[in-house]
Design a protein around this nucleic acid. Structure first.
Lengths: 196, 196
DNA sequence: TGGATTAAAGACCAATTGGTCAAGAATAGA
DNA sequence: TCTATTCTTGACCAATTGGTCTTTAATCCA
């Protein structure tokens, strides 16, 4: 964030690393569910340092969401566009990701989905950032879909992409409750009917 | 909640009515997003009256979720089971409900879905109650699905039901962001491939 | 070495949080 | 009317909230 040879005392921590810790907190517990003291504990930074580096709590949240975008969303989008694997397999991996994660006891879900439920109603910037993330995933899904259906027009492709994204989001949310994951796997294979 | 001819001063408000107001607050803003003072303002009740009637904040939240269950979830389930309408139409109405609601500027989504994203990670009771709600909807979806596919076995029917539920949940969450609702309608019709 | 500049530490702040309590008010039955 | 019971009101509480400020420490460039 700052130049290494900037004047003054150098920062003793790595911005990105700390932001990732903050991201995991907001991801898991939402905006109001995370307090400054929790962030201080997790990052082992003083309040003033946090404010100097990232701004107020809202900015921290937004920056954390941005981190998620470049760390997680972008990676998922890249995987969807990676043509070295069969198109159908890439799509399946994406849609099943919520379930495989849940099988590994990971209930955190998807930060984007959680943020949409948690903060979209309150904060316009969050709402916009979430929409951007969703669009990026939807666009990425279009790539393998075009491989499967070279004949289909753009509108139908986009529609299929958003249907798959809705499934992904739905699974991500449902998995957070005590619902049986086993049943959802059957559901996913039924849902693959969208691919036809 | 209390008998009309109970001893002592009678309650000056209707429990259910107040609980509905509390429900709408938690629905919209989540557990941590709602403060006691907001509840006091909305219900026009004093803190102590609220505590006497509903218990602490957590109990209020759980009771509000219960209200949602009997008010909204049960109604949706009933509509899905209502055989006076064509099976396919009932399913479509259910899955499209998130989008028709969003078209009317209603961004609140679904309390069950929001609660799953918001509180499932933290509170076991919420997690269980959310799961029950999802199962009820999934079970209800099974009814019109059996009408469409009398030949299909129970496992496949349940799988289709959960796939449709995932779509519903996904739409509910996505709609909260700034995503274009128009696109989602095309997505929904593509997703109806699950019915085949 | 001496400013200039920036970061770290933690004391400090007003406001708000969820939650309780004591006093008065309204009812039913005796 | 009296008493038992329940409800309402609003003061009150400690703890925590997000956020600031001052002091001290570390670095760069001259």
């Amino acid at each position: 964030m700052r130049d290494r040879s900037a004047p003054g005392r150098p920062r003793e921590f790595d911005d990105t690393e700390m932001l990732r810790k903050i991201m995991r907190l907001f991801w898991k517990s939402g905006f109001e569910g995370v307090s400054l003291s929790m962030i201080m504990k997790e990052t082992e930074l003083q309040k003033a340092s946090l404010y100097a580096a990232f701004g107020d709590k809202r900015s921290m949240y937004l920056k954390a969401l941005g981190r998620y975008h470049t760390d997680v969303v972008a990676a998922a989008a890249r995987a969807l566009k990676d043509t070295t694997l069969p198109a159908q397999e890439r799509i399946k991996t994406f849609v099943l990701a919520p379930l495989t994660a849940a099988a590994g006891e990971d209930r955190s879900g998807c930060f984007l989905c959680n943020a949409s439920a948690d903060q979209s109603d309150l904060d316009a910037k969050t709402r916009a950032q979430v929409a951007t993330g969703f669009e990026q995933l939807s666009d990425a899904l279009t790539v393998p879909l075009t491989e499967l259906h070279p004949d289909l027009d753009a509108v139908d492709l986009a529609a299929k992409a958003q249907a798959l994204l809705a499934l992904y989001v739905g699974f991500r949310i449902m998995v957070r409750s005590n619902i049986a994951v086993g049943g959802l796997e059957h559901a996913a294979s039924q849902a693959m009917a969208v691919l036809r």
